[in-house]
């Protein structure tokens, strides 16, 4: 069994601390890459070797990243013990990685409470944290629909909803995204919504979106122009959103993608 780039032989009865950790990490790796895995099938294995009790003891007796790692392992270790109150406590930790690991564990063990757990999460979710939640979605663990997330007032839920739309290419969410761009007061949410619309290749020339864009910083407008150029928007589409001075660089960049100026004997056969 390969764990952390070291081979460790798994014995039928993991009675040492190292064997138990190796077994738990091996299960975590396998389940992290498995779609639709039901954690309940592991109950017998977990109960037989008391893996959940062992993991909870390790969490209590360790600190820092090691503790964070053990909390994350709890997400793939089903338990009959009351772990949710403990995880809720770690959710409020000042250590960002620890609190996110606790949230991931709660989402994996109690998916029915996912939305409330994310809504009550005290920190702002970073892009990397949202990607970890999306990974749970891709594994079929979290039954979350995007519509209530996009219309929610909670920033974390909204950002998650935008990430879901972007990752799964949900083009029918176009209207909700445009409403967020027009109506939301949170600049970061508006930028995420604009980014999501651009990834989906949706038009951004609507009058209200143009008005909202005109209120944003010049540096962000330049970044957005470059991003839309990379995403494949045409010059005509860019001209409806930006001024001629803003699209000057994009125009020359687009030209550099279009024409083959030289005939090469070996490459052009």
């Amino acid at each position: 069994m390969l764990c952390n780039e070291e081979f460790s032989p798994i014995t039928p009865s993991p009675d040492t601390r190292r064997h138990r950790i190796t077994l738990i990490e091996a299960l975590h790796i396998v389940l992290s890459h498995t779609y639709g895995a039901d954690l309940n099938i592991l109950h017998e294995l977990v109960c037989r070797y008391d893996l959940d009790g062992f993991l909870l003891r390790q969490i209590r007796h360790s600190r820092g990243l090691r503790q964070t790692h053990f909390i994350l392992l709890l997400s793939t270790t089903p338990s009959n013990k009351p772990v949710i109150p403990l995880l809720n406590r770690y959710c409020h930790s000042k250590n960002c990685e620890k609190s996110v690991a606790a949230l991931i564990a709660i989402l994996a063990l109690r998916p029915s409470t996912a939305i409330s757990a994310i809504a009550l999460f005290p920190h702002r979710l970073r892009a990397l944290d949202i990607s970890r939640i999306i990974t749970l979605l891709r594994r079929g663990i979290l039954p979350i629909a995007y519509e209530p997330l996009l219309t929610s007032d909670n920033t974390n839920l909204r950002m998650l909803g935008l990430a879901i739309v972007r990752n799964f290419g949900i083009e029918i969410a176009d209207k909700e995204l445009q409403n967020i761009v027009v109506a939301s007061s949170d600049e970061m949410v508006v930028r995420e919504a604009l980014h999501t619309l651009s990834v989906l290749g949706r038009p951004l020339g609507r009058a209200k979106i143009r008005i909202r864009l005109s209120t944003m910083e010049a540096s962000y407008r330049r970044e957005l122009c470059r991003h839309l150029t990379r995403e494949g928007y045409s010059l005509a589409a860019l001209r409806t959103i930006f001024s001629p001075a803003e699209i000057a660089h994009s125009a020359t960049l687009l030209k550099s993608y279009k024409r083959n100026l030289e005939w090469h004997p070996t490459l052009n056969t």
Partner: peptide
């Protein structure tokens, strides 16, 4: 040392987060 340990900890999640890191 702490930064490298943290970097190794999140290394497994980094490759899958392209779409959620925005246009960075």
């Amino acid at each position: 040392a702490r930064t490298i340990r943290l970097q190794r900890y999140i290394a497994s999640d980094a490759p899958g987060c392209h779409h959620t890191l925005g246009s960075a």
